[in-house]
Amino acid sequence: MRVTLHIQKYNPETDHHPHEEPYRLDVGRGTTVLEALMRLKNETDGTLTFRYACRSAICGSCAMEINGTEKLACKTQIRPELERHGEVRVGPLKNLPLIKDLVVAMQPFWEQVRSIRPWLDPLPHEAVDPVAMRDAYKAFNNVEACIMCGACVAACTVYEVSKGFAGPAALAKAYRFVADPREAAVTERLDRLQGDGGIWDCTRCNYCVEVCPKDVKPMEAIVLLRRASIQSGLTQTLGSRHITSFVDIIRHEGRLNEGLMPMKVIGFRIKDFLRILPLGVRMFLRGKVPFPFKLKPAIPGIKQVRAIFEARKRK
């Protein structure tokens, strides 16, 4: 079958801007995007630049944007792409500095990973619980499958607007060390993740889960880090107060009280209170703020809801 691949080209020495060029070639049933790129480089355009090594979804070097979504070129076949999108457009990963054609600089990615100290601070051998060790792999929640391809970081909607964010892959890796029964510095690790750029910067958009070629589910790992933080008493960030306040309101009323929620989260932080106040007033004038202290705010079956919450608490 003869197809056209629209490939983004950019040579910093001659081009002002990246631009797309059409490349026509014959492909077979299972031809991958990477195979097509290799053939085009050999037969049509020797300047075409991209990274690859293993060709079997192991090394993580061929991640790129295919029809707008971050994928491994070696794992993505052309035909299904064509059927799904009616075209095949190939470009470099977003959110990372472009070097040439389909190649981006991975330094920011490596720095994110380094920032979480991706090595073990080991407990003395005798202190490691052998039973926990037996289940350790399960506890990692598949994070160790990460091939560091950067697809999740390129797709991350927070990293797009906030480059200080540690990003999904690095935070997933942080979780892997927190969950390791041999790790001695769990509390310190969690502590370091509380500030700006840490676990509370994730908006839970699920993009990293959706694009990861290895089912690492970085967002799930971030949620596990948040839970571990609250359980270890790190409850003063606005992010953790968001969770505890929400749970509290649902336990009492069964339904979210949007008038009360901001006040509970912000508490007595005057600066934050003044930040949300003007919006609250404008919303109130538009009839958008439900009165926070209704006499009977709860849903009719609240007793049942409370009982379910209480039973959980006892556990």
């Binding site: 927070v158 797009e160 964010f165 908006t203 606005l238 929620m261 989260v265 912000i266």
Partner: peptide, 12 residues
């Protein structure tokens, strides 16, 4: 994120 990280949220 809007309550706790407003600058990021409005950036989005």
């Amino acid at each position: 994120l809007v309550l706790e990280k407003e600058p990021i949220a409005i950036g989005m």
